[in-house]
C-alpha cells in the first residue's frame, strides 16, 4: 500500500468525519428540487443591547439572532416558520406575527409557510 493510502487510513482512524458534520452536509441539500420563492434579507446594524445580536431585514421580515436563539417578525399570511439548520428543521408557529426559539449557532435558512413558501438566504 502506498504511503498516501496508509496516511488516509490513519486519518480516517484518528480524525474521522463526525457524524453531525455529515448530517449537516445532507441537510444543506434539503431543499434541492423544491419550488419556493426567494426572499431577500440584508444584515442591518444591530441595536445596542447586551450580548452579540445580529439583525437581518427583508420585505416585511425582521430576524434577530443571539447565540443559539432566533426571534423574528413575519409578514401577514405566514402561519409557520421552519428553520433549516445543520441539525434539522425546527418549526415555529407564528403568534401575533412573531416566532422564535432555539436553532443552534451555525448557518440557518428560514422557510416562511403561507399560501406559498418563501425561503431566505442562509444567515
Amino acid at each position: 500500500m502506498s504511503l498516501v493510502w496508509q496516511l488516509r487510513a490513519a486519518l480516517d482512524a484518528v480524525d474521522p468525519v463526525p457524524e453531525g458534520v455529515r448530517d449537516a452536509a445532507v441537510m444543506a441539500g434539503g431543499l434541492l428540487g423544491c419550488a419556493w420563492d426567494p426572499l431577500e434579507l440584508a444584515e442591518v446594524r444591530a441595536p445596542l443591547v447586551r450580548g452579540e445580536v445580529r439583525v437581518w431585514e427583508g420585505p416585511g421580515l425582521t430576524v434577530h439572532r443571539r447565540g443559539p436563539e432566533i426571534v423574528g417578525w413575519v409578514p401577514g399570511g405566514v402561519s409557520r416558520v421552519d428553520v433549516q439548520t445543520a441539525g434539522g428543521h425546527p418549526g415555529f408557529a407564528v403568534l401575533d406575527g412573531a416566532f422564535g426559539g432555539p436553532v443552534g449557532t451555525g448557518p440557518v435558512r428560514l422557510l416562511l409557510r403561507g399560501a406559498r413558501t418563501a425561503v431566505t438566504p442562509w444567515i
Binding site: 486519518l11 480516517d12 480524525d15 468525519v17 463526525p18 453531525g20 458534520v21 455529515r22 449537516a24 452536509a25 444543506a28 441539500g29 431543499l31 434541492l32 445543520a86 451555525g106 448557518p107 442562509w122
Partner: peptide, 30 residues
C-alpha cells in the same frame, strides 16, 4: 465529505470551525 473535512482540518481548524467550513462548502454546492 471526508475530502471536505480533511481540507478544513489541514488548516488546523478546530472540529467546531471545521464543521462550519464543511457546512458552508456543502451549502455553496447546493
Amino acid at each position: 465529505s471526508p475530502l471536505v473535512w480533511r481540507v478544513a482540518r489541514a488548516h488546523r481548524l478546530s472540529t467546531t470551525d471545521a464543521a462550519d467550513v464543511s457546512q458552508s462548502t456543502w451549502i455553496a454546492l447546493a
